[in-house]
Amino acid sequence: MTVSAKALATTAAELSTWFVEMYADLTALAENTEKGVSRARGKRPTLAERDLKAVQPAAETFLGKHVTPEAAGIIIRPGVVGDEGDIEWWKRGEDGSTARVLFTLTPQTAGFYDFETLEWFRNVIETGRPTLTGPYLDYAGMDQYILTMTVPFRLDGTIIGAAGCDIELAALESALMPMLRRLDVDAALVSQHGRIVLGNSGRFLVGNRVGELPTGGVSVDLPIHELGLTLVAAPRERF
């Protein structure tokens, strides 16, 4: 069975729509938070932690609209509301409520979460562009195998952090596998680093490098910001 360009384009479009909507709503999360934060700060020249109360309702709106992410919120870079930065991260509870997730942000302490060096934060700060990180094991963070989506968080036009969400791989699978399974070939969603995010067969296991395109294989770039996501497909092969 050869790879049908039309079927591939349909799946690529479906996947793109899903991601584009997610990033649009993360941008809304950032903008709604900015409005609230700006109002709370008033005429004070510097931001205080108490000004960040707008994060929770904005995160709840986001989590209410999207069932796949397990947590969302805002991360502020060090030096804005304190030397250690601030992570306002809200996790979905079983009863629909949200609970704040706390992280250890003090260097030299056990379980220190050194988020400044992580791709989902650094890339947004450095490039100002939406970023997709993972799949990765978020040690000292959520301690799970996740995907993190982030966009810049601005205040008065300056990027002071990131707005984002975490998605457990198992949840991503439920959301996207039906799209990949409609293809009658082996197919995988592949990250910008060439690692498999999700595959529709035992041939493409999550986290593995996809490597060179197999014979008869094709790769389609997904036009989602500049995330570098691709959809790779190859004639079905049994092992």
């Binding site: 596998m177 409609r182 009658d184 067969s201 035992g202 296991l205 092992f239």
Partner: peptide, 19 residues
């Protein structure tokens, strides 16, 4: 692992015999 994954995918996300 391949056999386990394929079986699970077929059980959870059937594709209407296209495969």
């Amino acid at each position: 692992t391949y056999r386990l994954v394929e079986h699970r995918l077929d059980a959870m996300y059937p594709t209407g015999g296209a495969r």
